[in-house]
């Protein structure tokens, strides 16, 4: 067929190109945008200090924060503090998660457990763990146990909620299918409920990991010698604002790292979505 637009038969004067009007509204990846925004923000921040708009006491410039950070790396205190906090986060989070998984699973499959558990969780979840610290000290002492407990308790309740709602969200038709093929209870749990609940459970991990990070500061209020939370608290008490911000930076870097690891895990485990 001849090209209809470029044939002399059509009246070129009345010919109008159809205007494209379909763009936008679909997310695209802009890998450099975030970095550029970050860099711009830091430059602006440094600039305000250099020009003298912000006093270095109230807003230490990034260069001062960087120096403080470099100091922490050089004298080994960064690693010392990080190690102590990572251990607390690791153990506390694992304990809370293990407990939360067990209880959440029970509440997910047994309606009696659900009836007992839901009001209890609603009652205990909103209690600020910081308010309980004196009690934790009496129960668990001021050693590592009370720090694990602080983080563990904080992680436990959201995990319970995430797990039982995740189990609720597993399509019932899959369970009926399994029953219709005579799969025993345990096999249904292992092969259907748990993998089906995995996306919700992993989403819960994302939340509880942040909670653990927040609570490590509270936990390290309890007589911690080392720990990134203790470090930040001390810098605050001593009004060393550059050190304080350096500690905060380390914490957000930790948060980013944990988030990235979880994303990796999700991509690995949830390819089927």
């Amino acid at each position: 067929m001849p090209d209809p637009i470029n044939t002399p038969t059509s009246t070129q004067s009345t010919l109008q190109a159809v205007r494209f009007r379909g763009g936008g509204f679909h997310p695209r990846r802009h890998p450099w945008a975030a970095l550029a925004a970050f860099a711009l923000l830091i430059a602006l921040w440094e600039g305000t200090s250099r020009v003298g708009l912000a006093s270095p006491l109230f807003l230490p410039p990034p260069s001062a924060v960087g120096r403080a950070l470099a100091g922490m790396i050089a004298d080994g205190s960064l690693w010392l503090n990080l190690k102590a906090s990572l251990l607390r986060i690791g153990v506390g989070w694992s304990l809370g998660t293990l407990g939360g998984l067990t209880v959440g699973l029970l509440m997910g499959v047994a309606s009696v457990a659900r009836a007992v558990g839901v009001p209890l969780v609603s009652a205990f979840f909103p209690i600020p763990k910081i308010a309980l610290l004196p009690l934790f000290i009496l129960w668990f002492g001021i050693g590592e146990a009370s720090k694990f407990a602080t983080i563990g308790f904080g992680v436990f309740f959201p995990t319970v909620i995430a797990v039982y709602s995740a189990i609720d969200s597993v399509p019932r038709n899959l369970i009926r299918m399994a029953q219709s093929f005579g799969l025993p209870w345990g096999a249904i749990l292992r092969n259907i409920l748990l993998p089906g609940a995995l996306p919700g459970i992993l989403a819960g991990f994302r939340i509880t990991a942040s909670i653990a990070l927040i609570l490590v500061v509270a936990a390290e209020m309890i007589g911690a010698e080392y720990g990134i939370g203790a470090f930040v608290l001390m810098a605050g008490n001593l009004m060393q604002t550059d050190t304080l911000l350096a500690g905060v930076m380390v914490m957000s870097a930790l948060g980013l790292t944990i988030g990235a690891l979880l994303s990796l895990l999700e991509r690995r485990l949830l390819v089927w979505r």
Binding site: I137, G141, I142
Partner: peptide, 10 residues
């Protein structure tokens, strides 16, 4: 918290 640690013998 100091009092709690004290009373708990910590």
């Amino acid at each position: 918290k100091m009092v709690a640690a004290f009373k708990g013998g910590q």
